[in-house]
Design a protein around this nucleic acid. Structure first.
Length: 574
DNA sequence: GCCGTTTTCGGCCCGACTGTTTTCAGTCG
């Protein structure tokens, strides 16, 4: 079992325990463990082999024993027993917006039904409204919740959430009296997927903001509308909420709403150490309740004796301690990026010619561009034969003449790592290219050992410079290949190959946890757009965001190096 | 069930909003 599968088991335990009515903190502990397992960045099996499961945050004796049983036998007696008490299909019910564990338990016990279909039928037949504590509104809320559940497909990719939030913010900024409007929550922390869009507005009078917000184009339902908070749903099931706070409280409010929850817990503790209670609204002196207001986040952090912490770091991954010791990393910025080392042209599946693409990149301040058109076996993309490459080289020469020294073109390839683990071109040919980026696109469902071996083969080929989107995941639809990432990192450390953070918001691969681990091991990172059109060049923004979440500085990323340093590195690699 | 430079027991965020209520419970973030 891998990290994700283990996380799913503990999430299920948490869901079923909650419906059963177990102590809430027990269920929270299971959820916490599940979250930490999913985001571990290292294979749980490694901890297990070293007998160090309890070193995983949120994993104590009881959960460590359960992981051990799962890894040894693939089963868990505790869960089997729990499922006999609480049907596991009820966990699905918790995904219905407006349905929580209490009502799920109530409906299940009173009506003796267990499936979503039965739930829908019961709601339609009017059987829910007479249950204790429920009424007509709860019943129709469950029906609409079921509807929106069928519409929405889980978390929203950052690449969809971010532009949508910017549109909403642009509309709210037009409202009279609005002084500031900012994204908050996981959106502001730039997580690769977002649950709901959170937006914070500074204004003295909230009423016109709420009016404008609930009347935005595309809103199909207003889920709530109050003085400080309102919530809406769009046609595709995406939900957004806005908080309105007076400008003098905007700093504490924005800090609070940005999270993460665990980061905020840390800050509140620091506040308490100084005799202050930190809330969404203010610092309050514990002694006399006297309030201190902060209009900016900087003031909030300053009051705690900390430098401002960039939102991307606020995940309780050591950022508070680093801030206390004045050791926050100087995070990479978009303008630090001087090279784009994965770009496609119309030689394969790109939309523009190499000249057009290079000009578009130069306009954006890029000094080196590598054309990594697909290799021969990826037929659907018009992969290039070695013969094609000769012609492409001639076109590069012509384009370079036109471009002068505004931008340097590298003749490269995104060479397929084939299902059998071999690369798509012979070594001698690979050696003739300026840069070789090797990627997985096919047979991603191979068993772990086989998939891992493919990537290791590519890493150990001395002609390969970068491993492109290492796991091959697609957000939100496709998990990446089941790779032994420890083995991948070890091999990369040995050979000095660079690992990519693919900036496409539908890839973002490596993710932040893996990228951070790679940095700690000294593995060079490459952030590339994988652009197939001019607009794709602007996706660099997302890749940099993931790099920032991974604590990367410009020194960690080969795309920030001077042209000379980059060329020397490529030359040395052969 | 987890965790610990004020605790190995006793905490674990809490406020806004809604709905079913006659002062509060459930859900959500």
């Amino acid at each position: 079992m891998n990290n994700r599968e283990l996380a799913e088991v503990f999430t299920l335990i948490a869901d079923l325990s909650e419906i059963k009515g177990e102590i809430i903190y027990k269920t929270l502990a299971y959820r916490k463990a599940a979250e930490n397992l999913a985001g571990l960045g290292r294979d749980v099996n490694e901890y297990w082999k070293e007998n160090k499961l309890e070193e995983i945050p949120g994993v104590g004796k009881a959960i460590a024993e359960k992981i051990d049983e799962l890894l040894r036998t693939g089963k868990l007696g505790f869960l089997e027993k729990l499922k006999k008490e609480v049907p596991s299909s009820l966990a699905e019910w918790l995904k219905v917006p407006g349905l929580g564990p209490k009502k799920v338990g109530l409906i299940w016990k009173m009506l003796k039904i267990t499936t979503l279909m039965e739930l829908e039928a019961a709601a339609k037949d009017g059987k829910l409204r007479d249950l204790p504590g429920m009424g007509g509104k709860s019943e129709s809320a469950i029906l609409t919740g079921l509807e929106s559940l069928s519409r929405r497909s889980g978390r929203i990719p950052l690449g969809r959430a971010y532009p949508l939030a910017q549109e909403i913010i642009a509309q709210l900024e037009k409202v009279q009296g609005v002084i500031d409007a900012q994204p908050a929550g996981s959106l502001r922390r730039m997580r690769s997927t977002i649950g709901d869009l959170d937006i914070l507005v500074a204004a003295k009078d909230s009423k016109p903001v709420m009016e404008a917000f609930t009347n935005l184009a595309g809103v199909v339902r207003v889920l709530g509308k109050g003085e400080t908070k309102s919530s809406i749903e769009f046609g595709d099931g995406v939900r957004a909420q806005v908080w309105v706070h007076p400008p003098k409280k905007f700093g504490t409010a924005l800090q609070y709403a940005t999270g993460s929850k665990d980061h905020n817990v840390q800050l509140r503790q620091l506040a308490l150490d100084q005799g202050l209670s930190l809330s969404e609204h203010s610092f309050a002196k514990v002694k006399d309740g006297k309030e201190i207001f902060c209009s900016t986040e900087e003031e909030v952090y300053q009051a705690l004796g900390l430098p401002w912490i960039p939102p991307e770091l606020r995940e309780d991954r050591g950022e508070v301690q680093a801030a206390q010791q004045n050791k926050l990393p100087k995070l990479i910025k978009i303008k630090d990026i001087k090279a784009d080392l994965q770009v496609h042209s119309n030689w394969s599946d790109g939309k523009l010619t190499m000249l057009e693409m290079a000009q578009a990149a130069a306009k954006r301040g890029i000094k080196v561009i590598a054309f990594t058109d697909h290799s021969v076996s990826l037929g659907v993309t018009g992969g290039l034969s070695m013969e094609d490459h000769k012609k492409q080289a001639a076109e590069i020469k012509k384009a370079q003449d036109k471009l002068g020294d505004s931008i340097l073109i590298l003749h490269a390839s995104e060479v397929e790592i084939k299902a059998d683990g071999t690369l798509d071109y012979p070594d001698k040919f690979l050696a003739s290219l300026d840069l070789v980026l090797a990627s997985l696109h096919t047979s991603l469902r191979q068993p772990r050992e086989k998939a891992t071996q493919r990537v290791l083969n590519a890493i150990r080929n001395p002609n390969v410079d970068i491993i492109g989107h290492p796991t091959g995941r697609l957000i939100p639809d496709r998990e990446g290949a089941d790779l032994d990432m420890d083995a991948v990192f070890n091999a990369a450390t040995e050979t000095g190959v660079a690992l990519e953070i693919n900036a496409s918001p539908y890839r973002l691969d490596l993710d932040d946890m893996y990228a951070r681990r790679a940095k700690e091991l000294g593995i060079p990172i490459s952030i590339n757009t994988d652009a197939h059109s001019e607009a794709d060049l602007d996706m660099l923004f997302y890749g940099v965001a993931i790099a920032r979440r991974a604590w990367l500085t410009k020194n960690d990323v080969i795309n920030c190096w001077s042209t000379k340093k980059l060329l020397d590195w490529l030359k040395k690699r052969g």
